[in-house]
Design a binder for these strands. Structure first.
Lengths: 198, 198
DNA sequence: CGAGAGGTTGATACCACTCAACGGCAGTGG
DNA sequence: CCACTGCCGTTGAGTGGTATCAACCTCTCG
């Protein structure tokens, strides 16, 4: 199944018929308030399990960030798969557990961290993704999402994001190499800031 | 297993050996920042599964809110149980999914709602708990936790909690009958406020 | 070259935080 | 029985961090 940039994959409140695995590209998950305020709850990458949190209806919306490929599994066929491969159930639970841990950290970010700490946390998080994938250092960071999305992910506004980036730059902590590319010059210090140790 | 008021049940970062089921009483789950800032991620009631999010180490701490009884299942024994009752694995995943949905709503609260909306959401949430248990209406609400805990749950300070309660009272929306007991006079309106529709 | 979207920067406003004083209540000891 | 003490919650005054509103910049695309 293919979805092109900006198109919706699933919608909050709709009956949860399917389960998805992201095979290629990126997706943002979010919930909306009636007046349009948005909270992005996750950026999903390749391999992400979409629709784990599904109870009867989806509890969030998902939208392609760039072009995306995914595998769709209707719940009925999932049930068949689970019967044939009992281990799958365990795998799904494992994935849900991992997700729960991440969410707890994000709740602390949203409830208790300052703008500076939030953005630092975001950069550190993205840096880890890169090291996992075997890139050289810890510091070349890609930001494939627009500022609006970063803001809605961190519970801030685009202006605040922009200002904090500028402040980091002024402090010699980062180098901005185009809107989507940032180099973290002092990863250890960035980590300190992200934990509120300045 | 019994734990008395205020005592720790498990600690963030400790190796996750056990899984718990809350059989009696209440528990607060939370994470801490190095400087002591705290985010309460959940108040757990009877029947709650504690330690679902466990990966290798616990990703949160848990503390008794009042005296508490729980069943402890070492992971090894859980594994045996899962083998004997294959359905249990499914049940665990279900519980994790439910938890994920709740957390998404809470992220929206922490990232995007005002103090007024947060407290209204909290009251509505607690009101639902009561109706589920078959109490008369929708409005008699019990607050077994101190203001400090409510504040750390909603990402606010105790002073703000106190002020918003006072404002609700002045607006004739609630009646405060002692620190731990609140009567919601206009549940529908409280619901509106909680969703930002004033 | 013009238009529009996305991002940055500046000025100002406002909501929630901080700091401080006060009040009520429970537990303690005289 | 009553002061004393400490904890918890409320209320007030002032501050500050982030939002809001607005102008400007930069890049892309037609």
């Amino acid at each position: 199944m293919s979805v092109s940039d900006g198109r919706s994959i699933l919608e909050e409140g709709a009956p949860a018929h399917d389960f998805f695995v992201l095979t290629n590209g990126r997706v943002k998950l979010f919930t909306l308030l009636p007046d349009g305020r948005r909270q992005i709850t996750a950026f999903a990458e390749e391999g992400y399990f979409l629709g784990l949190a599904a109870v009867k209806t989806y509890s969030f919306s998902a939208e392609a960030l760039g072009d995306v490929h995914l595998c769709r599994f209707p719940h009925a066929s999932m049930q068949r798969l689970v019967e044939r491969f009992p281990n799958l159930e365990h795998r799904l639970r494992e994935e849900a557990s991992r997700e729960l841990s991440l969410m707890q950290a994000r709740m602390t970010l949203l409830g208790r961290k300052t703008a500076r700490e939030r953005l630092a946390t975001f950069l550190v998080e993205r840096g880890k993704l890169l090291t996992q994938k075997g890139n050289t250092g810890f510091q070349e960071i890609n930001l494939p999402m627009p500022r609006t999305d970063i803001a809605d992910y961190l519970g801030l506004t685009i202006e605040t994001i922009s200002r904090v980036f500028s402040a980091f730059k002024k402090d010699g902590l980062i180098k901005i190499q185009g809107v989507t590319h940032v180099k973290v010059l002092h990863p250890e210090k960035m980590l300190m800031i992200s934990e509120g140790l300045e």
